[in-house]
Design a protein around this nucleic acid. Structure first.
Lengths: 234, 234
DNA sequence: TTGCTTCTTGTCAGGCCGACAACTACGGTC
DNA sequence: GACCGTAGTTGTCGGCCTGACAAGAAGCAA
């Protein structure tokens, strides 16, 4: 029933955890402590445990390697990378990559398996990661940009309560373009089932200017939006 | 370096091959010849070979089990299913599901591993497949519907040359709704970089009515369209 | 020729979008 | 306190796309 002719695999999970820091899209990377690629930067990840769900493994590795707990963290499977030569080690290793989004926080600390963990602007990670992690990052970035159009994922980049201007900042950072504040405001307020006003208002981030109304996001991060929000030429 | 504590996996590929037959969305299923689920219907698929790319394994299994050759066949990774209990056998089996689209043809024949292969309307496959293949089919269906909006995938359901009415039939079958012929015509002709006229025209399928202009599709099946084609309320 | 079918083009009202102006509500400065 | 700068919010307007529907074009059948 299990013939020896079927090859044996190891299965890992990798996590592309994205956040927005000062208007820049950043990704969490760890410095590898073990061979192969010891000392190189890589995406957090590791081997899937016995009887463990794939997404649970991703969440666990994130905690172990970076100390980031999955509270308020949106995590979804991205794509599986299984090229025969993607790992130098004797057995074949297939990696199920995950896309994660979280509000930015200075909590990235070294865990057990990794010597160091830090946030890096995705634009500055050009060809520098271990394994095929550059390709995984590219895929994640494209997926995130696309998910912003038709899901509520943008809110996962922010704390539970936020202003429309902050949300606009997320779209601008991920899409890499400037958006008209007025039109964005109108569009988001009209988008049914996405935002809910808390009634509060807060000073703008710069300290100057009119206070902004505070909102909460409705629904689940990866849940589809009634009407998409386009990046066409915004 | 490879510690024995890491669990060992088998990796399989499964293919959800979709087509449109007489206005109905159909999926290719095979009858299993071996345990587990011997005699039950399942998606074509099998174990990934040594040194074999995942998508190549999917294409190979399709040929072996159904005789369908990947000529004019659009194939892309869909999602990986790896729940610990998804396979009854001793070792854990992770399956990398693929979405395939092909013009309908009566070529589904039994291969080596499967006793029988046939096209079944997706609406009639309610809870009847082996393993977690029902969930995989659901995922594929949703993905295909979504891909029709913003890629050129619809053309992969048809032979190289086709009419706009045939293309409309694809959208109607996959989305499960009727589309206004006039508006669809205008929309598709305006959609730059999708269709190219061959200059020919053919009789409509029914034999009656005005002949239709024949088109060819430009670009790759999973390549993004300049402007999306919405299913909102068409 | 007439009728029927299907593809194709036309019309038109309504809605959404992008560009941009105007207004509002603060803090800071003289 | 008057003024100014900034940022959030609302308003305006022309253009484009959409959906509903009508009309024309090109074949087949009786």
């Amino acid at each position: 029933m299990f013939r020896s002719e079927f090859p044996i695999f190891y299965v890992t999970v990798d996590v592309v955890l994205l956040a927005v820091r000062e208007g820049q899209l950043v990704v969490l990377v760890v410095r590898r402590g073990e061979e192969p690629y010891a000392g190189a930067w890589a995406l957090p990840g590791g081997f899937v445990g016995d009887g463990e769900e794939l997404v649970d493994a991703a969440r666990r590795e994130l905690v172990e390697e970076t100390g980031i707990v999955g509270d308020g963290l949106a995590l979804e499977q991205l794509k599986t990378f299984g090229a025969p030569d993607r790992d130098r080690r004797p057995h074949r290793v297939v990696s199920v990559a995950h896309l994660g989004v979280t509000p930015y926080a200075e909590t990235a600390t070294a865990g057990t398996d990794a010597q160091d963990a830090r946030w890096v602007p995705v634009d500055e990670v050009t060809g520098g990661l271990a394994f095929d992690h550059d390709a995984i990052l590219d895929e994640a970035r494209a997926r995130a940009a696309s998910k912003l159009e038709y899901t509520r994922l943008a809110a996962s980049f922010l704390p539970p309560e936020f202003t429309i201007a902050q949300l606009r900042g997320v779209y601008e950072a991920v899409w890499g373009l400037r958006i008209d504040p007025g039109n964005f405001q109108r569009k988001l307020r009209a988008s049914a089932g996405f935002l809910e006003s808390t009634g509060d208002s807060v000073k703008p981030a710069s300290g100057r200017g009119r206070p902004a109304e505070v909102f909460r996001a409705l629904g689940e991060p990866f849940e589809a939006l009634g009407a998409p929000i386009f990046r066409s030429a915004m």
